[in-house]
């Protein structure tokens, strides 16, 4: 079997399986852990608190906004750009149709796709530079954080290098890095794409019940 066949065939199956099963397993475990019973007298509803927790945290709390300016700008640039790229870039939509779902949706026009890529690259670079240049974040970052950043960057970079869609080698390189990313995903910081909902909701519910306003 050639490397190309391996990357296009079995490795993709493995990556997809690990990704889906791994994410499901980790989420199930987290949910199954359950919550500690809160014996306090409820001051207000936990559901409202949970929703407030999930939605409200999209903006930094007052007082932090100034100090988090770079995080806020770069974070939104990166995440929105990546989201647009991942789900609405024409080559990805084609991929979802051909290899995953069997149906497609309207992709972004080419210029918007590139604009999203620019935003994502700018955001990720600034976030990572901040991580290593800010003494505080440098101190609290560990290898897992750097691995997640670098791997995400490599996925985006190889994708950008393959933009011409004309060289099989470049597509395979991108695909290979994506597979590594998917295998690494469930066991790493990258899980925050799913778990941020759980943690925000749990904390929000807790605060809600206690009547704390954030």
């Amino acid at each position: 079997m050639t490397v190309a066949e391996l990357v296009d065939g079995p490795l993709w199956t493995v990556a997809l399986t690990v990704f889906v099963a791994g994410v499901a397993w980790r989420l199930l475990v987290l949910i199954a852990t359950g919550w500690k019973r809160d014996l306090s007298h409820p001051r207000s509803g936990s559901l409202g608190g949970a929703i407030r927790g999930v939605v409200g945290r999209f903006l930094p709390s007052q007082g932090m906004a100034g100090r988090l300016r770079l995080h806020l700008v770069a974070g939104y640039l990166f995440h929105l750009g990546l989201f647009a790229l991942l789900f609405f870039a024409a080559p990805h939509v084609d991929f979802y149709r051909d290899r995953l779902f069997g149906f497609d949706w309207t992709p972004l026009p080419h210029w918007a796709f590139i604009l999203a890529a620019e935003a994502a690259f700018l955001g990720l670079l600034m976030l990572w530079l901040n991580r290593v240049l800010n003494p505080v974040t440098r101190l609290i970052s560990e290898s897992g954080d750097h691995a997640a950043s670098v791997l995400t960057f490599l996925v985006m970079l190889t994708g950008c290098l393959a933009l011409a869609r004309s060289h099989e080698t470049l597509r395979l390189l991108h695909f290979f890095v994506v597979e590594l990313f998917m295998i690494y995903f469930p066991f790493s910081r990258l899980m925050h794409s799913f778990t941020f909902l759980l943690s925000r909701a749990a904390q929000g519910a807790h605060y809600g019940r206690r009547g704390v306003r954030v």
């Binding site: 080419h110 210029w111 590139i114 933009l163 011409a164 004309s166």
Partner: peptide
């Protein structure tokens, strides 16, 4: 005739 000089071959 695409943006970013993506004009095919």
């Amino acid at each position: 005739d695409g943006a970013f000089a993506s004009r095919g071959k």
